[in-house]
């Protein structure tokens, strides 16, 4: 590995931007599925930073972290979407503003 042409700072900055956009999506959107997708965006931003640091330190541990994050994200999506489907069956809506009560 020669000296990288793209400095790691740029990767970290891009990762921070994507993370903030994901966080904005979680806070501002009202559609539960959109919120879920924003969470995925945040996880991906973190993955990008991990891969960038792994290259910087020439250390494979970062790659393993990314691998585990992707696996856990898959598990989380399976459970989360199942929850959304279950909620939709009872409430007929996935607008999270309408989901503020325990009873329907």
């Amino acid at each position: 590995m020669g000296t990288p042409e793209v400095p790691i700072e740029l990767y970290v900055l891009l990762s921070a931007i994507l993370f903030v956009m994901g966080a904005l999506g979680v806070l501002l959107r009202r559609n539960a599925i959109l919120i879920f997708m924003s969470v995925e965006l945040m996880l991906n931003a973190a993955n990008l930073a991990l891969a960038a640091f792994a290259r910087q330190w020439g250390n494979g541990d970062g790659h393993l972290m990314v691998f585990f994050v992707i696996t856990v994200a898959a598990a989380e999506v399976a459970v989360g979407l199942a929850l959304i489907v279950a909620i939709f069956r009872t409430k007929k809506s996935i607008n999270i503003d309408e989901l503020h009560m325990f009873k329907d």
Binding site: A75, A78, L83, A86
Partner: peptide
């Protein structure tokens, strides 16, 4: 992590079944 995946699979089945 593979255990987590397994648990998630079972959880997804249970959630949708109760619905």
């Amino acid at each position: 992590v593979s255990l987590v995946l397994l648990a998630a699979m079972v959880g997804a089945i249970i959630f949708t079944r109760e619905a």
